[in-house]
Structure formats: structure tokens, C-alpha cells
Design a protein around this nucleic acid. Structure first.
Lengths: 339, 339
DNA sequence: CTGTTAGCGCGTTCAG
DNA sequence: CTGAACGCGCTAACAG
């Protein structure tokens, strides 16, 4: 930069100002500076600028399960929204582990991100969040809700899950199992509540043995499904708590030679882009993932603009997508004839 | 930091050194400093450190199609590998557009990333790469190969695609269409070469009308498939150039009421995690995506360590996964009975 | 409209 | 084993 200044015959101050348009400059000097910049191949050092200005124009995203297509849509949306606002995205995977999450969040904060998007793991309330509060980093929570004074965005879980279960009951099922995610996550707890609510309202007795811990993960869900099938009275229908577990459940059913929906019905939380193209065509709840990501960024940006604004919690609506895996079309053949 | 120094009764120099373990210090002072750090809640400013040291411990990843599950696995692997090495990941989507790609790469470089991973778009050779060279940013190319003096990692494309086509020919197909990606991408070109090679070797005449431009994208592939079906002599088999296009092709077939593999065979480049669980069970080429990401990071790190090391180009092996969508099991019923 | 100067928070020579 | 002083590259008063 000093080089540019010398070459343009002006001071570094002027260079800085023409670069940032921070204050008026004569056409002549502006051109001179521009020319010098071009000739030297000068490129600004964002770090130095951030250090001087106290603001990095960057956002951190701490999330788990990057390989989960659901979260990837979120990441894509966040990257896009952040980019539009002139911010760069720093990415970290929490691994759903509070210890690791804290390390990630810490790293991000030490890199002076202007704000942080976090999908808090179970345990965040005792580790990450206290730290974040004392560090005074602007945060918005993503996907999972927590009982804290922070901006939060997520989806409705209870009612949609109830809808899924109701539907199975309508078709005639009474032994309905559910593969649930990590206990303690608001998403998990709310979905379980929705499940129970639907049972209650239909007068179907709740059987705890039908609630299988799938740990939000594929392989664990697979094992859970096998256990369910080993029950004296195995379920005639399953509801999956998220997309990862859906794969695991199906793998287990596959290993047992059971067909969906003929031998067992399956409905799931989380849609797949291709879900209507393959058999069994899954009946699911679809979350507005893209909107989730972009809303979260908007909330964060607005908080950066006005740190005193009261916190806001937003529930996005999820939609019921009716296909064939619930087995209610009558013709199970229809499901198999897909594509 | 000054605060910590005062509280510990030492100089900032000492604080810096005990933090970094840069030089010996008496147990007493070390403890004093540590105590002061704990009490002040001091957290290091990575930016200032980077500015002083000239090195950010951060890597940039510029890639397109974040919503593509294939690339997401890569992102996950890169994040993991980078994290292990103590680096933070800065993420940017190139949108497969050289202009935007340049902006992304520039932003990343101005943020002083130590190195950059890039999946170059078509046109990068004229825009991004010259800039990167003059900016002297360490780079490793990802997924797509280019004729430049840079480290590169990607998969084998030609032979695997040929394998796919050979297989279709073995089953008796001769009118084999292919949905191809963006022309100019090495992945596209190599896959097309593989396609032609297999035809040649089998003595099947090459018909250019069967080569449909799917633009690496879902919707474009869908339209391309419709066009193929409108041909006087429509194909009896299709090979998809990547996973995005596979979805598009299937959507078109679905819209026509055509079943795979009964009415038309389909094989594809890129596997899906769930591909063996749904019908039609896709016969595909699987890329080692995780390995791709981690190898790329390793290459980049080794380059940072030794900038003079000769460039290396690595081809990872892709594997042929035989399932039912090729229609060669004889019993097409088997395909539909899945799950 | 422009230049001088003092930091931003830290690492790192040099002297002790 | 420890401290003082300078500089990383840039912005922002404060003068002029």
C-alpha cells in the first residue's frame, strides 16, 4: 500500500480513502491511485483492515453432520445469503459433541467473526453458550431451540410429526414405532411430543418399547429397527425422526427382506429431493431448509445492525408430503411402479 | 493482552511467549500468566497474530454446487482434514461461473488464507488461474483437471465411464444415449471420451444426436431427456454424467411414465448413499469423495510445507457398482421388489 | 481536497 | 530467564 502511495505520488491515507470511497478525492488523484494499484498488482489485506476497523465482514457457521443433505442445503443457503451481504463464511463441524463444539466456536470467535450461526448440540447449554455469552459474540441459534435469550430459527416439529402419526392411524395402524434422534435436542423432544400427542388424541395406547433411540444417526437407527423387529409384537409402521435415520431404517428392513409399504409402513421427517422418483416413494415432512438458512443469516445481520433489538424466535412451517410409503393408496403396486 | 500482562506483573512479551510456548519461562511466571488469562477471560486475536506472523492457519475452499451431495462429502472431508491440521475453513461457492469464481477466490486470498482448494469452473484458465498465479497463492485443484503446473486431485473418469457403457452393450443395447455435463470440464470431456471409446471398441456406431447436453444440472438434464425421447429412434439406454443429472433424467422418464429398467436402462456416474435401498436400484460408478477431499488437503499442506516440491497430479480410482437399473438381472421384478 | 500521526493486537528481533 | 521497542497493513482522527 505504501508502494502504491509512492507510485501515485500521494499518501497512504489517500490510497485508503479512494479504495474505500471513504471521502471525496479529485478525479486526478483517484485515477493516479487506480493506475498505481493496477500496476503494482496491489491487493488489500482484509486482516489488517479488520484489525484496524474492528470488524471482519465474516460469519461463522457451526453445525453438525455436514454430510447430511438437510444441513447441506442450510449451508448452501447460508453461504449464499452471507455472500450477498458481503460476508465470508467460516465453517466448522461441531460433531454433535459439546467439547468439540466449544473448540470450533472458540476458534471461530478468535478469528473475530462478526457473528455466529450455531446448531447447538446437546450440552451446549452448559459449555458453549455460557462461553459465548461471556465472549459477547452475536449468535443466532439454528434448527434447534434452547431456552435462552438469543435469536433462534427453526421449524415446527410437534404438529407435523403428529400429522404423520395421525395419518398412519387413519390407515389403520396402531402399533406405530418411532426412531427418535438424540434425546435433549429440541427437535427430538418436540417430535416425540408430536408422536405422543397423536396417539393420545386417537386413543391409541403409548408403548415405550416402540420408541427406539436412533441417535439421529444412520447406523444406530438401523440397529434400532432390527431391535424393533425382534419384538414379540413388532410394529406395523415406523416413523423416522430424520433423514439420516430413514436410510438406516430402510437398510434394516432391506436386510430383513421386508417391503415398504406392503410389509411395514414408513413415514419420515425430512424430505429427499429425489423422493418421488424412487420406490418406495416416501411420505414425509419437508422442512424449508433454504429458507431456514437465509432467515438465520438475516436475523444475524439485523442483530449486528442493532444489538439492542429484542430477541426473536422464528418457527418456520414444515409441509406434509403425501406419497406411497404410508401404504394408504390401496394399490401397493402403485408404489412399486414408480419410474 | 496488555491487561493480562499487567495483572500478571510481567511484560506482554512474556505473555506472548507463555501462550505460544515460544521460549522458556519460570514456572512461577507461567502460572501467574495463566491465572491472569483465566481471570481476565482473555482470548487471543487470531487476526492480529496472523498479521504479525504472516500466516493465518486457514484454508479456502472454492467449489460449486454446495447442494450437490457429491461435493458435500468433499466439503465434509476437507473441513475434517483441515481441522485436524489446525486450520479453519473458509467456504465459497463459485456457482460454476468464472466471474463469480474470481470474486470468491479473490475474497479468500485477501483474507490471507494460507492455501486454496479450487474446483475450477470452465473459463478458470482465462480468469481465476492467471490471477492466482500472479497473486502467488498456493493452490490445489480439485475434481477437475487442468493443463497447468499445479497440484491436482481428481478421479479417473474415462475408463469407468467406458465400463458403464460396455456393460450396457453387453446387455444388448446399441442405442445408448448420454447426458453430459458442462463441456470443457475435464470430468465431462473425459467421460464423453470413455463413452465413445466403449462404443468404438464394440463396433457400435457413434450417433451425435444421442449425446445430450445436461449442463451438469438437474433441470437441464430433464429437458435433454425429453428431447432424447422425442427422437425418431429414441435410445434404449442412458448413461448419466453425474448425480444431479441422474435426478433430472429420472424425472423426465417419470413424466413419460417410463420404467427403469423395463422400458429403458439407466446407469450413472456418481453413487448415492441410499442407492441400494430404493427401486430402481442404480448401477453406478462411485467416486471416493471423502478420500478426494482429504487427499486434496494433504497435498495442499505438503505444498505449504515445501513450496518447491514438484507438482503432483493424483488420479483416484472410481468403482463400478453393479445393481439393477441396467436391467441385466433378467428379472426386472427383482429391481422393483427392493426393500 | 490532502497528509501526519497514532493506534488495532500481536510476534519478534534485540538487549539486558 | 525477561523487557523494550519496532513493525505487520490498514483505518481514523486530527490538522492543514
Amino acid at each position: 500500500m505504501a508502494e502504491v502511495a509512492k507510485l501515485a505520488g500521494v499518501s497512504v491515507t489517500t490510497v485508503s480513502h479512494v479504495i474505500n470511497g471513504t471521502r471525496p478525492a479529485s478525479d486526478a488523484t483517484r485515477r493516479a491511485v487506480q493506475a498505481a494499484i493496477d500496476r503494482t498488482g496491489y491487493r488489500p489485506n482484509t486482516l489488517a483492515r479488520a484489525l484496524a476497523r474492528g470488524g471482519t465482514q465474516s460469519l461463522g457457521l457451526a453445525i453438525s453432520g455436514l454430510s447430511n443433505p438437510y444441513f447441506m442445503d442450510v449451508v448452501a443457503a447460508v453461504e449464499d445469503a452471507a455472500g450477498r451481504a458481503g460476508h465470508t463464511l467460516l465453517l466448522g463441524d461441531t460433531r454433535e459433541d459439546p467439547e468439540h463444539e466449544l473448540r470450533i466456536v472458540r476458534t471461530l470467535a478468535e478469528r473475530q467473526v462478526d457473528g455466529l450461526l450455531l446448531a447447538p448440540s446437546v450440552g451446549a447449554l452448559e459449555t458453549t453458550l455460557p462461553w459465548l455469552e461471556s465472549a459477547e459474540v452475536p449468535v443466532v441459534l439454528l434448527d434447534r431451540f434452547l431456552d435462552v435469550e438469543l435469536d433462534q430459527v427453526g421449524c415446527d416439529n410437534e404438529q407435523p410429526t403428529a400429522r404423520l402419526v395421525e395419518h398412519l392411524i387413519d390407515v389403520g395402524h396402531t402399533r406405530i414405532a418411532m426412531a427418535i434422534g438424540i434425546p435433549g435436542l429440541s427437535t427430538t423432544d418436540e417430535r416425540v411430543r408430536g408422536y405422543r400427542m397423536a396417539l393420545d388424541q386417537a386413543g391409541v395406547p403409548f408403548d415405550p418399547t416402540l420408541l427406539a433411540d436412533g441417535g439421529s444417526q444412520r447406523d444406530q437407527a438401523r440397529e434400532a429397527m432390527h431391535a424393533l423387529l425382534d419384538l414379540d409384537q413388532p410394529p406395523t409402521a415406523v416413523v423416522s425422526g430424520n433423514n439420516f435415520m430413514t436410510i438406516g431404517l430402510l437398510r434394516a428392513l432391506n436386510e430383513r427382506g421386508l417391503r415398504v409399504p406392503d410389509d411395514i409402513a414408513l413415514v419420515a421427517f425430512d424430505d429427499f429431493e429425489w423422493a418421488d422418483l424412487f420406490a418406495p416413494r416416501l411420505t414425509v415432512i419437508r422442512q424449508p431448509t433454504t429458507e431456514l438458512g437465509s432467515r438465520a443469516v438475516e436475523l444475524l445481520l439485523s442483530r449486528l445492525e442493532d444489538p439492542t433489538r429484542p430477541v426473536r424466535t422464528e418457527r418456520l412451517e414444515a409441509t406434509f408430503v403425501h406419497r406411497d410409503s404410508c401404504g394408504c393408496t390401496g394399490s401397493s403396486r402403485a408404489a412399486h411402479a414408480a419410474v
